[in-house]
């Protein structure tokens, strides 16, 4: 893993539209400040109904989220940094176009014991 100064984007021909244009210049979302990179989103019925009329990047997020997608996957899908994906997802969630599924952590900030046990069962069954 290396620091990538967007060499990949240049190799692909580069992004033409700057990231700030997607988010109207905002770098922070109001509701999504604690939305972690692994948070999952799913399209709502409202989102799917409204998708054809949404801006292209928002439409792409909603349509991809018929299968659960993490914030990281949204970032990869649009080829934008996580912070940009977080702003777009927060806006779509605020309009009820997406449902957001956050991690379940205990008071110590770590995953609940029952989740670790389910994870262990799932890995052993692989």
């Amino acid at each position: 893993m290396t620091v990538d100064r967007r060499q990949r984007a240049h190799a692909d021909g580069g992004r033409v539209v700057p990231n700030y244009a997607f988010t109207a210049g905002r770098t922070r979302s109001t509701a999504g400040t604690d939305m972690p990179i692994e948070a999952l989103v799913t399209a709502t019925d409202t989102g799917l109904a409204k998708a054809p009329g949404l801006p292209p990047e928002s439409r792409a997020i909603v349509e991809a989220s018929t299968v659960p997608q993490s914030l990281a996957e949204i970032g990869a899908l649009l080829d934008v940094p996580i912070g940009v994906a977080r702003v777009l997802v927060s806006d779509l969630a605020a309009e009820d176009h997406l449902a957001v599924h956050l991690p379940l952590v205990g008071p110590d900030g770590r995953p609940r014991r029952e989740l670790l046990e389910r994870l262990l069962d799932g890995l052993r069954a692989r």
Binding site: A31, E38, T44, P68, A93, D96, A99, P103
Partner: peptide, 17 residues
């Protein structure tokens, strides 16, 4: 989190780790 109230269809809620 869902601002509106559209229920998700999953029998058990999705949880990321």
């Amino acid at each position: 989190v869902s601002a509106g109230g559209t229920a998700t269809r999953e029998a058990r809620d999705l949880l990321p780790l």
